[in-house]
Write a protein that binds this DNA or RNA. Structure first.
Lengths: 113, 113
DNA sequence: AGGACTGTATGATGTTCATCGAACACTCGG
DNA sequence: CCGAGTGTTCGATGAACATCATACAGTCCT
């Protein structure tokens, strides 16, 4: 058969938090880590669903990277979808900005840190 | 003599960071602590220079409190001035908002966390 | 079926940091 | 000059967390 469709994936689906239910504490903690900010920035510069987890240029190993994405999902910042063997990402711009107006814009400013 | 004027205070003046020189990392870390957010909120609801450090209703001892104010000064969020035996505070609204637009507004939203 | 590739789970380790208790420094009023 | 009040400093403690190395679990290609 050509592609996947229904019934298919035996992989544990990633757990996503609804951005509307994310607490300020959770959001700020998520965003207070430099590696995660770097991920967000790199993600913001790419098209939705175009980047797999391993395609980011961060100075940490796979395990830590996986952890960071878990945190980002939990903060409602990133959405993930399984696409074959890889997990591709999307920045939840609108949703997150609706919950925490201006925060994302702040992270994406070039000067900052 | 009645009051203090020049030459006077033998007390170590508090060290302030220029908000314009504060890194995003520093600001986010400072703001990622619930106790500090509470301090900021309480401070925002009071007139400038009206609140001494000990007048805040936070569930920590004096030592920790002093530490938190040091962090807030270092992030350019709070300005302090010695007034007799106590150290009074002022939220640096304009300056901080100029450096990190929208961040302070986010913290002062009632709903958040 | 085998193997390369991608990501997750599990411990273990080290660091950062929030907190406290106690001691110290300074200011002001009797 | 003493004492109450206020805040800082120091050392220690404990918890949270970022990281790694290893092992494991899927997916795809040959």
């Amino acid at each position: 058969m050509p592609k996947q469709a229904e019934g298919g994936s035996h992989r544990a689906a990633p757990v996503h938090a609804d951005p509307a239910d994310v607490s300020l504490q959770t959001a700020l903690s998520a965003v207070a880590d430099p590696v995660r900010v770097q991920l967000i920035r790199e993600l913001a510069g790419s098209a939705d669903w175009s980047r797999s987890c391993g395609s980011f240029d961060v100075p940490v190993g796979k395990a830590a990277l996986s952890h960071h994405f878990t945190v980002l999902r939990g903060a409602g910042l990133v959405e993930q979808r399984d696409e074959g063997p890889r997990r591709v990402n999307r920045l939840r711009r609108e949703e997150f900005d609706a919950r925490f107006p201006g925060l994302l814009a702040l992270l994406l400013r070039p000067d900052a840190d």
